[in-house]
Design a protein around this nucleic acid. Structure first.
Lengths: 144, 144
DNA sequence: TTCTGAGTTGCAACTCAGTTGCATATATAT
DNA sequence: ATATATATGCAACTGAGTTGCAACTCAGAA
């Protein structure tokens, strides 16, 4: 799920029609260089290591990224959303796992579980754009 | 998904080792007599029609029900959880649909989409207890 | 009957994650 | 250089749920 450290985040921003700014680059980098989706407070902390950022700015950047499809907003079953990379050539669609003991959210390798929305036939007149699959259980760490 | 109006909710509470009280019965009835999972504020409003209830009490009853497996807490992709009936002989496991336009959450008929956790093989040493499948798109109403 | 004591409910104040309004700063266009 | 748009920051706010504690209820003991 990790994006290469040598990836040019400014390019990625431009490709997704987002004006590249230092803060946006820092936020994108913090999300991309992770193996799991992060809560806003975690992204905040990650960005703060190098640059100072206001939480309002962070939330606005996250909203913008979600809007452009660059980032996906995920619910972990608690009150804080997690933010993970959207689908690109580097990041394909995948399900997630949440540990009900420690609350951590992990990405499942796309091979482990995949569902193609286009191939699903859900009766009724609804338009289906997306499926979110979230497994719940106990993670490797919490099992001891 | 609806439970019969003649269902004895007090019996259901007892069967699930929950002390039956008027408020608990009212909350359970409000959830059970719906075709879709409700947000706490909606349950509040539904209960208020007949009885007065404090929001703290409501949340405590919901926590208790979720704890006993009587009710399921679901994330709709926004900040308010939805509460729907848990699995019983009346209510089998099913996926949900959320309209990204109006925010409503609907239950999908179990036949339309079903996944058996026990039959899934997710590699790794995690223990998987549950899967939540949430479809996103535009509901029949919002399509006009 | 009155007295417990566990379980249930209510009220006020709080937390936490995210938002709004508005002022300031920075970048881009003329 | 000036005007306009876009980005960021700060303070105060919101909404959903929680905590601490007091008051009520009701079954069983004295």
């Amino acid at each position: 799920m990790t994006m290469s450290k040598h990836c040019n985040y400014l390019q990625v921003l431009k490709r997704n029609s987002v004006d590249p700014t230092p803060l946006r680059e820092a936020v994108l980098r913090s999300i991309a260089e992770q193996t799991r989706p992060l809560a806003a407070t975690e992204i905040m902390a990650a960005v703060q290591i190098r640059t100072s950022i206001n939480k309002v700015t962070l939330y606005r950047i996250l909203d913008l990224f979600v809007d452009k499809g660059l980032v996906k907003r995920l619910s972990a079953g608690d009150r804080a959303f997690r933010y993970g990379m959207g689908e690109t050539h580097h990041h394909q669609d995948h399900a997630h796992f949440v540990c009900t003991r420690c609350g951590v959210m992990e990405c499942l390798e796309p091979e482990l579980f995949h569902m193609d929305v286009k191939k699903l036939h859900i009766k009724g007149k609804r338009i289906i754009n997306h499926v979110d699959v979230r497994f719940e259980g106990i993670c490797e760490n919490c099992r001891e």
